[in-house]
Simulated assay, not measured.
Amino acid sequence: MKSSANPKQPDISVAECGYSRVLEIISNKWTALVIYAMENGSIRYGEMNRIIVGISKKMLTQTVRKLERDGVVQRHITPTVPPAVEYSLTPLGETLLQPMSELRQWGRIHFSHVETARENYDKTNKKDAQSKERS
């Protein structure tokens, strides 16, 4: 008989799960792209804004500030006129490159399967919805 004196609790609570806390850092779609922009070293704000297609200046600013607060990105200001601002990954930020690279690779290999599954699901559920409407 199993002892219930010390039951093992699952680590799936949003407040307690370390994984969910990590997702808070990287789950924004722009965060991953900003980190990818810095994977080869320092990059100026303007260059980052040009290479990340679709990001607004406001969203880029919010994203790099959040990553800076989280200790993932560091900002370096060169006192020129106008000031040159460069961003780079901190040593902590660099530790995200491998797992994020693996996620990117997974997406390249498997996302077509996800799209096919979505299409199949939508077709099946559309048929089910139409059958219910006729009933």
Rank of each mutant, 00 (worst) to 15 (best):
S4R: 15
E24K: 06
A37G: 08
P79E: 14
F111D: 13
D11H: 08
M1I: 10
V72Y: 03
S88G: 13
I25L: 12
T63F: 08
R118H: 04
V114G: 13
N49L: 15
Y19G: 07
Q9L: 13
L103M: 14
R69Q: 13
T80V: 13
Q105M: 05
V73P: 00
D128A: 12
K8E: 10
Q130Y: 08
D11E: 14
A5V: 13
Q105G: 12
V114H: 07
K66G: 01
V72G: 01
Q74I: 04
K132Y: 15
K127W: 11
T116S: 07
Y19D: 09
E24V: 03
S13M: 08
H110S: 08
S88W: 01
E119Y: 14
P79H: 05
T78W: 04
R104W: 02
V34A: 04
S20D: 01
A129S: 14
T61V: 12
L97Q: 07
A5T: 10
V22I: 12
E119K: 15
L97N: 05
Y19E: 14
W30H: 13
S88P: 07
R21P: 06
V73S: 01
R44T: 12
R21F: 02
T116M: 03
F111A: 12
K57H: 09
T63D: 03
Y45V: 14
A84Q: 14
T61H: 14
L96E: 02
R118Q: 04
I77L: 06
I51R: 09
I77V: 15
V81N: 10
I12M: 09
G54Y: 05
D70S: 12
I26Y: 03
P79T: 12
L23K: 08
S13F: 05
D128M: 10
G46F: 02
I52C: 08
P10I: 01
M100W: 01
A15G: 04
R104A: 15
N120F: 01
Q98E: 12
E133I: 04
K66A: 06
G41I: 09
Y87C: 07
M1A: 14
I52W: 05
A37Q: 03
R69E: 08
S56N: 06
V72M: 08
S101H: 07
